[in-house]
Design a binder for these strands. Structure first.
Lengths: 151, 151
DNA sequence: AGGATTCTGAGATTAATTTTAAATAAAGAG
DNA sequence: CTCTTTATTTAAAATTAATCTCAGAATCCT
């Protein structure tokens, strides 16, 4: 649990550099994100969780905090076409976004942390002169569990 | 302009197979999509364009039509995190989704039609047992034009 | 024709997100 | 420490993309 505090301090200084503060509400939001970093929470889901720790917080603040964190590149904002954005803390050492496998049978979202696209980014750079800084990659398909059940 | 009609006839038969009709409103919507196939239009933008040709059409119909075309795999639905879905006619011969290069300086969206991910999909299948049927890939970065301007 | 089915527009509705306005809290200057 | 400025908050209102409702049309089948 040590490294969680370290990460929060990290984020605090990133905020400070941007002239922003780590208020108790923001701290609670970030902390909850850290404790649920594989969950792809929506703003409302996150709000419900945060409220358990820090009752003095409104939904609008959660939205604002997420927006700020997104602008600073601290969280990822992903859209699985289910009507709302979902958020994800970016791991500190990870320059790159991770990928997702979205099962169209059971709806489960699985994360892939390997960077599969280094070669592809190289190709994009050479062919189009486009300098890639990040990417969003979602695979749609059928997960191992559902494949097994079908047979 | 010949092939546009061919494409519409194609789509008409796909609709018929699903027990649906190509009404004048749907025809106008599809036609407008065909004429703007590189534009990544939102539903509202498309509605405005369609209205110029076929004044007797409502926004709800455009939404409904897009939903149908999406279900049938005729259009792609993409989300660039700008608050609404954008739509794209899938090219007929193209089994796969195409990719996008989103420039964070000028906002331009460029299409990439090459399928860059065959190897990657193979890897996902082997490592995770996940059977990929489709994917969404967006690269964020700086386009060739903006790179040139900066220097 | 006539009965079933599919579609449509306009407006109402929903749900996610953003904005507003007034109150609060923290930070810096003197 | 006090004044001033600036950032932040809450709760409610506003906005906005998307969907739904429903009564009337168009189309199809026989």
């Amino acid at each position: 649990m040590e490294f969680l505090e370290t990460r929060i301090t990290d984020i605090e200084s990133q905020l400070h550099q941007a002239g922003l503060k780590l208020t108790p509400q923001r701290r609670a939001t970030v902390s909850t994100l850290l404790h649920n970093c594989e969950k792809h929470l929506s703003a409302e889901e996150l709000f419900t969780l945060v409220r358990k720790k820090e009752t003095d917080i409104g939904l609008a603040t959660v939205y604002r905090t997420l927006e700020i964190l997104f602008e600073l590149g601290i969280v990822n904002k992903i859209n699985f076409e289910d009507g709302m954005s979902r958020y994800d803390l970016r791991l500190s050492d990870q320059g790159h976004f991770h990928h997702h496998l979205l099962c169209k049978v059971c709806g489960k979202v699985q994360e892939v942390h390997e960077d599969l696209l280094l070669d592809v980014e190289e190709e994009v750079k050479n062919k189009f002169g486009f300098e890639v800084t990040d990417h969003r990659l979602i695979f749609h398909g059928i997960c191992a569990d559902c494949l097994a059940k079908k047979k």
